[in-house]
């Protein structure tokens, strides 16, 4: 697909991306663009490498020994190769936020959870912290529920609230790309709906990449969808096209439920 023909500019682009857990190859020569201010969904059966792919974008694999990347993920507009050994993974994570499968608020106050990313960046000004925390909680549609108890411990919130807190925590640092790793798989349907709605609002200002094993969710919220299978990117395209008339037989089998 030629990015120039697309109405949205490319925010990031995987080029011939291979990934290895030790000797096991988990991703095979993946080429895929992420369009700016669009939601891209990664779908596929368990073990297909979709989470592995997502975690390449913020170099999460660097935290564990024995992992190896090949190829590039080029990040625009500055054309940085995120996987280059010359690029500090901390710099990458400062530009790219992540929300995890299971809500993982820190055992600290609601305020401190959201402020943490700013503290890490050396922000000490109370005014700036207050403003930023408020704005982020508003952006994550959580402000009205927690504004009177910012000092409360975060683990006293419900699961859905905790996940929105984690989104606020990621938003507070103004990421250019936000990674969601099955963000609703631990939540009930109502909380899931609120997170999906939130993502829809968020894409106005941030590019989103989401892993989901819920195909309806991918269909509901994403603009582009990638189907992965056994470490290969089988098909990538506009979500409507993928779900209505997939080009690849394997994609069709998966979407129609013949392959799980």
């Amino acid at each position: 697909m030629n990015p120039n023909q697309h109405p949205y500019p490319v925010k990031a682009e995987a080029r011939k991306l291979n990934f290895f857990y030790g000797l096991v190859q988990a991703l095979k020569a993946i080429d895929m663009p992420l369009y700016e201010r669009q939601v891209t969904a990664l779908i596929g059966p368990s073990g297909c490498g979709k989470s592995t792919f997502l975690r390449c974008f913020n170099r999460m694999h660097d935290l564990y020994p024995g992992n190896r990347y090949e190829g590039e993920i080029v990040f625009h507009p500055d054309n940085t190769n995120l996987l280059s050994t010359e690029v500090d993974p901390i710099e990458v994570r400062m530009r790219i936020g992540m929300v995890f499968q299971k809500p993982n608020p820190f055992p600290k106050s609601i305020f401190e959870n959201v402020a943490y990313g700013l503290r890490v960046r050396g922000e000490r000004n109370r005014r700036v912290l207050d403003d930023k925390v408020e704005q982020s909680l508003k952006d994550a549609a959580l402000w009205n529920e927690v504004k009177d108890r910012l000092k409360d411990m975060a683990f006293n919130l419900s699961g859905g609230q905790q996940q929105r807190l984690c989104i606020a925590r990621a938003l507070a640092t103004d990421p250019e790309l936000l990674l969601f790793d099955e963000p609703t798989s631990a939540l009930d349907p109502i909380a899931t709906a609120s997170i999906e709605e939130l993502m829809h609002d968020l894409k106005k200002r941030v590019t989103i990449l989401i892993v989901t094993h819920n195909m309806q969710q991918a269909a509901r919220i994403s603009d582009h969808t990638a189907y992965m299978y056994l470490g290969d990117l089988i098909e990538f395209g506009k979500t409507d096209e993928i779900f209505i008339k997939p080009r690849d037989k394997r994609t069709e089998d998966y979407i129609t439920g013949r392959l799980s």
Binding site: L63, I90, G97, P105
Partner: peptide
């Protein structure tokens, strides 16, 4: 839990910041 470490590092924290906070 590893999720705490990952949560901290994903926000751009260094090892020492993760240890300290």
């Amino acid at each position: 839990p590893g999720a705490m470490r990952e949560g901290s590092m994903a926000l751009g924290a260094t090892k020492w910041q993760t240890v300290r906070y």
